[in-house]
C-alpha cells in the first residue's frame, strides 16, 4: 500500500469534478474518520482490519482531493482520549501508525515529485518511542514539500492544544521575550500545533455522529460542518462531491463571517496597542508612539514564533537520533 493512490476516474466522476471546480472549492478539508470499528463488525472482521481499511480510504480521499484542487487535508487519526481503548487495540493502532510512517520514507521521491508535505499535530511525547521516531523522520523528510499538505492529528485534542499554546505564551512572558500585552488572539492561534496555517473550509464527520469530539475546536470556527451517516471505510467520491456542493451553496455566508471576525480581531489588537501607549506616555500619545509600539510588538512576536518553530523542529530532530 502506498500514500499516493493514483486511479483513473470514470467519465461521470471526472465530469462532476470539472463542474464543481467552476465554483469555489474548499482549499482545506478536515475529516473525522469515524466508523472503522462499526465497519469491521458489520463485515465480521477484527477491529484492526477496520482501521487498516480506514487508512486505505484516507489515501484514496487524498487522491480525490488532489483531483479536485483541495491542497490541504487534516485528519483526526488518534485522540488522546483513545488511549483509554483496550490495550490490544491501542497497540495495534500504534503498530499501524509506525508502519505507515515507515512507508513514507520508502516513497520519498514520489512524495517530493508531487510536493506532498506530511505534518503531525498533537502532543507527540505521549506516543510510544518507536512511533515518535517514525513520525519525526517522516515529518522532517517531507517538510520542504509545498504543494499538498497532509496534517495527521495524532495524540491530539483541541483543549490540550490550546492549553499547550497558553503555556508557551506564559513561558515567553516569564522569560522576557514577550510582554503580556503582546498576547492576542492571532498570537495564540499561531502557537497552536497548526501554527496559523489556513483554517479548514469544510469539516466532514462520517458515521452519523454530530459532534466535534475535541477536534480543531479553535480552527473550525467558520468551517462548514458536514455530517454524513456513511461509515468511513465506505465513503465514496460522491459523498465528497455532495459535501462540496453543500459548501458552495453557503460559501458567501462563511467567507463574510470569517472576514468580519478577522476585522474584529484586528480592531482589538489596535486598541490594545493604543492602551499600552496611554499607559506609557499618559495623555501625550502621538501616532508615532503607536506606530513604534506596533513595530516593536511585531518584532517580539515574530522572534518568539521563530524560536517556537525551531524548538518544535529541534524536538523532532532529537527524536530521530
Amino acid at each position: 500500500m502506498t500514500w499516493l493512490v493514483e486511479k483513473n476516474r470514470s467519465w461521470a466522476e471526472w465530469a462532476v469534478a470539472r463542474i464543481l471546480r467552476v465554483g469555489p472549492v474548499p482549499r482545506h478539508l478536515a475529516v473525522i474518520m469515524d466508523g472503522n470499528r462499526r465497519y469491521a463488525r458489520k463485515e465480521h472482521q477484527d477491529t484492526l482490519t477496520g482501521h487498516t481499511r480506514g487508512f486505505h480510504k484516507l489515501t484514496e480521499v487524498l487522491s480525490w482531493c488532489r483531483d479536485l484542487g483541495i491542497n490541504e487535508v487534516t485528519a483526526y487519526a488518534f485522540s488522546i482520549e483513545n488511549f483509554k481503548r483496550p490495550r490490544h487495540e491501542v497497540e495495534g493502532l500504534m503498530d499501524l501508525a509506525a508502519e505507515k510512517f515507515a512507508e513514507v520514507l520508502e516513497e520519498l521521491e514520489k512524495l517530493a515529485k508531487h510536493g506532498v508535505c506530511i505534518r503531525a499535530l498533537g502532543n507527540l511525547t505521549l506516543l510510544p518511542e518507536r512511533v515518535q521516531q517514525g513520525v519525526a523522520e517522516a515529518v522532517l523528510a517531507t517538510k520542504d514539500n509545498d504543494k499538498y499538505f497532509i496534517n495527521l492529528a495524532i495524540a491530539y485534542t483541541s483543549r490540550e492544544e490550546i492549553g499547550t499554546a497558553m503555556s508557551e505564551l506564559c513561558r515567553g512572558v516569564s522569560e522576557g521575550q514577550l510582554q503580556a500585552s503582546d498576547i492576542s488572539e492571532e498570537l495564540l492561534e499561531k502557537c497552536l500545533y497548526t501554527g496559523g496555517t489556513r483554517d479548514p473550509d469544510l469539516l466532514i464527520r462520517t458515521s452519523g455522529e454530530v459532534r466535534l469530539s475535541d477536534f480543531l475546536l479553535w480552527q473550525s470556527g467558520f468551517s462548514c460542518l458536514f455530517f454524513t451517516k456513511v461509515l468511513w471505510p465506505e465513503v465514496t467520491i460522491w459523498h465528497l462531491f455532495g459535501a462540496i456542493f453543500y459548501y458552495q451553496r453557503h460559501y458567501h455566508t462563511l467567507a463574510e463571517a470569517r472576514r468580519e471576525s478577522l476585522n474584529v480581531r484586528q480592531c482589538m489588537v489596535e486598541e490594545s496597542d493604543i492602551d499600552v501607549c496611554h499607559a506609557k506616555f499618559g495623555e501625550k500619545v502621538t501616532a508615532e508612539h503607536i506606530a513604534a509600539q506596533t513595530c516593536s510588538r511585531t518584532e517580539r512576536t515574530d522572534a518568539f514564533l521563530k524560536e517556537l518553530y525551531e524548538k518544535r523542529i529541534n524536538y523532532l530532530k532529537k527524536v530521530c537520533k
Binding site: 483541541s158 483543549r159 490550546i162 454530530v210 459532534r211 466535534l212 469530539s213 475535541d214 475546536l217 479553535w218 473550525s220 470556527g221 467558520f222 468551517s223 462548514c224 460542518l225 458536514f226 455530517f227 453543500y246 459548501y247 451553496r249 453557503h250 455566508t253 462563511l254 463571517a257 471576525s261
Partner: peptide
C-alpha cells in the same frame, strides 16, 4: 440558519456538544 457552522461559538466549551 444555514449552513451548519459554529460561527465562532465558545470553542472551548463545545468539545462534546451535539450539533443539530
Amino acid at each position: 440558519g444555514e449552513p451548519i457552522s459554529t460561527m465562532g461559538f465558545l470553542p472551548w466549551q463545545i468539545r462534546l456538544s451535539e450539533f443539530f
